[in-house]
């Protein structure tokens, strides 16, 4: 067992003990091990180095590595907790933990705020929202006139930017999503409840003596 664990650690930099990761997240030990099966497949899709780079992340989302996307890049940057340009296994588990159906709502709100605060200023600014709208239009091949985009921004900031200073702060965001709960839908992945069923092979690669449920 000891040999197996050290081999895993050598091949997968940042690999943390599944029992320890489970104790810090909403996942069980079995679920962490099932996530490791998914992680192995993503992290070996382009370069088999035990780490997920941006190209591998995009490939996992779009099944097409050539597709550059502002939002997938932004999620990658937030998953890259240690800011090393790659996602290691502990980053992967801790970040996905926010998307667990049982994760605290405050964590989901906080993550979504950071997601849209493209320039990490602590505010979601109008120009950032415009940039995201334009990126969405490019991605979806939908066309909207610039006047219409401005009208959408006016409406959004009228509703969200309560103190009308041209930017949305965290407390305004908390208030806004409480009135528009559908905005947090993307922050919950029901798949995470069934991860052991989706990746049953974790049982054969388990590092722990007894699988906790």
């Amino acid at each position: 067992m000891g040999c197996f664990s050290s081999k895993v650690k050598r091949q997968f930099p940042g690999h943390e003990d599944p029992v320890s990761l489970a104790s810090q997240t909403a996942f069980t030990v079995s679920e962490v091990e099932a996530l490791f099966e998914l992680y192995k497949s993503i992290s070996s899709s382009v370069i088999d180095d035990g780490l997920i780079n941006k190209e591998e992340f995009q490939l996992a989302i779009f099944k097409n590595r050539k597709k550059e996307n502002l939002f997938a890049n932004r999620i990658f940057d937030l998953f890259d907790v240690k800011k090393k340009g790659v996602i290691d296994f502990s980053d992967f588990v801790r970040s996905l933990n926010v998307f667990h159906p049982n994760a605290p709502q405050e964590d989901k709100i906080d993550f979504s705020f950071k997601l849209y605060d493209l320039e990490n200023t602590g505010f979601i600014e109008r120009r950032e929202v415009k940039q995201m709208l334009i990126a969405l239009l490019c991605e979806s091949e939908m066309k909207l006139a610039d006047d219409t985009i401005e009208l959408i921004l006016d409406k959004t900031f009228r509703e969200a930017d309560v103190n009308q200073d041209g930017k949305i702060d965290l407390s305004e965001w908390i208030n806004f999503v409480s009135k528009n709960p559908s905005l947090l839908k993307i922050m919950t992945l029901p798949y995470l409840r069934d991860i052991t069923t989706t990746f049953p092979s974790f049982v054969f690669n388990s590092e722990v003596d007894e699988i906790a449920t």
Partner: peptide
């Protein structure tokens, strides 16, 4: 035509924000 959606409702439809695809084999 009145604008009914807010910007974030539109943005959240991006495929790049759909992490469900990570689990689809």
């Amino acid at each position: 035509e009145p604008v009914t959606m807010n910007a974030f409702e539109l943005i959240s439809t991006s495929q790049g924000l759909n992490l469900n695809s990570l689990f689809e084999k």
